[in-house]
Design a binder for these strands. Sequence first.
DNA 1: GGAATAGTTAGCCATATGCCTAACTATTCT
DNA 2: AGAATAGTTAGGCATATGGCTAACTATTCC
Lengths: 111, 111
Amino acid sequence: MPNYSAEVDAVLRALADPTRRTVVERLAKSPAVVSDLLALFSMTLPSLLQHLRILEDARVISSSKQGRVRTVNLRPGALDVLHLWLGEQRTSAERQADRLGIHLTRAIKET
Amino acid sequence: MPNYSAEVDAVLRALADPTRRTVVERLAKSPAVVSDLLALFSMTLPSLLQHLRILEDARVISSSKQGRVRTVNLRPGALDVLHLWLGEQRTSAERQADRLGIHLTRAIKET
DNA sequence: GGAATAGTTAGCCATATGCCTAACTATTCT
DNA sequence: AGAATAGTTAGGCATATGGCTAACTATTCC
C-alpha cells in the first residue's frame, strides 16, 4: 500500500469545487482552449485561471501554449489515484461486511 | 445520466479534508465510537464533531447513540456516487482516446 | 447523591478560498 | 505600426473553513 495521500489530497481538493469539476467534465470530452472553458461560466478570466492552476498543480490537467492560445487537456489517468483510493476503502468495507456475514451465519448455526 | 451533482459535491467536499479521509479510512475497517476516532488525532472533541457532522450531512457516514456512546459507521455504498462520477469522466476520456486512436490509424493508412 | 465519562453547543479567531478589478505582456490581424 | 485578441500577474475583499475554549447535558459508576 503505497503512500498516495499527497496525490489523493491534491486531487480531491481540486475536485471539491463545482467550477473545477465542470472543467474536468468538459475536458473529458475533448481538449479545449482557455477561452472555450471561460464560455462555460459567468466568471472573469483571472478567476478561471486560478482554477486551472489548481487543477494543473494537482496534475489533473495539463496545458500548453502555441502562439497566444493555451490548450488544456485532461491528463490521461489523472483520476486513477482517486479510483485506487476509493477501491481501497471499498475492499475494506467489504471485508467488514463479509466478517459480519460470517458472524451472522455462525450465530445462526450456534443457535 | 441522472443529476448526481448535489451528492457528488457534498461527498467530494467531505473527502477533500485529510481528517475526514482518515475517519473514512478507519471506518472502512469497522465501526467506531466517537472517542475511538478522537484518539486518531491531536484535536479537540468539538473539532472532530464538526468533521463528523460534515461527513454525516454528506451521507458518507451514519451514527447512532446508545446511552452516552455514539457509534459511527461508514454508510454502505456511500462512495458509489463518486465511483459513478469518476466512471463517467473516464468513459468520456476513453471515447476521446479511441477517437484519437482511430484518427491516428486513418492518418497512417492514408500516408 | 456525587463524581467521572461521553458527547454537545455556542461563540471566537486565524487562515484559506474564490472572486473581482486594474494593469500588463505577448501574439496576430489589417 | 496600431488595434484587437488571448492570456497573465498583482492586489484587494468577503465569506467559508477548521481549530479552540468554555459552559452545559446526559449517562454511568461508586
